[in-house]
Amino acid sequence: MLKLSGLGKRYPTGDRALTNIELTLPKGQVMALIGPSGAGKSTLIRCVNRLVEPTEGSVTLEGVELTRLSGQKLRQARRSMGMIFQEYALVDRLTVMENVLSGQLGYVGFWRSFLRRYPQSAVVEAFRLLERVGLPHALDKRADALSGGQRQRVGIARALLQSPKLLLVDEPTASLDPKTSRQIMRLIRELCAERELAAIINIHDVALAQQFADRIVGLRAGEIVFDGPPGELTSDILTTIYGEEDWDTTPEPEDNSVDERDDPTPPTPMARVAAGGAR
C-alpha cells in the first residue's frame, strides 16, 4: 500500500538524514521503526506526509506518487495519513472537541472550520471517537487541562477523524510513564486492527516495539540495517542498530525513553515547512 523507493533527505545545512530508503508496507501491517536518536526516524515519517520535503526518491501511497503533488492534491493525500506526535501537539487553548474536529480540516472549507460549523456526520464521528478513546466527558475541557495520557488519546482521536488509511506515529510514548505507554500502544494496536490501518510507529522502547508490532525496521545513520519480524531481533542485531552495549544483562532497555527523549531533527526547517503548508 505504501512504497518508499530510493528515498533520501539532505538538510540545507548539508547534514544527511536519510539515504536510499527502500520500504514497502502492506495494508493492515503495524511496523515499528527503531534506532538511536538522530538516526532519522522522525525525518523518515515526516518525509512520507511531506512535512519534511524529501530531496530524492519517491513515496507512493496506493499508487499515487506523493513527492510531486502540490496544493490541493497534497492536502487530499495528507487527509489519508493520520499523524500522532510525541508531545501530543494539541493546540492547548482549544477545547478537546475542537482539537478532535481539527482532524476534519482537510475536508471542510475555511469559513466552515473558522466558524466551527462542522457537518453533523463529522460531529457524530468525532464524539464516537472520543468515546472510543475513553474521554467523552472531557468534550469541553481545554486541551491543556488534561494529563499526558489523556492528551495523547485526544491526539489519536484527531488522527482517526481524518479517516486515514495509514497512521504515522512519532514517539507516541516518549513523554509517558510505562503503564500509560502500554495502554496507548495497545489502543493504537486495537484501532489499527479495527480499521485495517497500516501504521509506522517510530519508537525508542525496543520492548514495546517487540510486543506490539508485526514487523520491526532498524534505522542507523539514515540507513535501514534491519527489517524483520520481532522474533528475529537478537542482541547482535541490537548492537548493529544501537552500537556496543551488553544487551542481555539489562532486563529491558525501557529507560531509554528517558534520556533519549529529545528529538534530534532540527526544528526550524520542519516548522517552516509545516507553517508554509503546501509549498
Partner: peptide, 18 residues
C-alpha cells in the same frame, strides 16, 4: 450541562462554548 452537551454531540449538534 456537560451531560446535555454530550447528548447533543452524539446527535451531531455541537457548537463551541461561548
Amino acid at each position: 450541562l456537560s451531560e446535555q452537551r454530550q447528548q447533543d454531540a452524539l446527535a451531531g449538534r455541537w457548537r463551541r462554548l461561548p
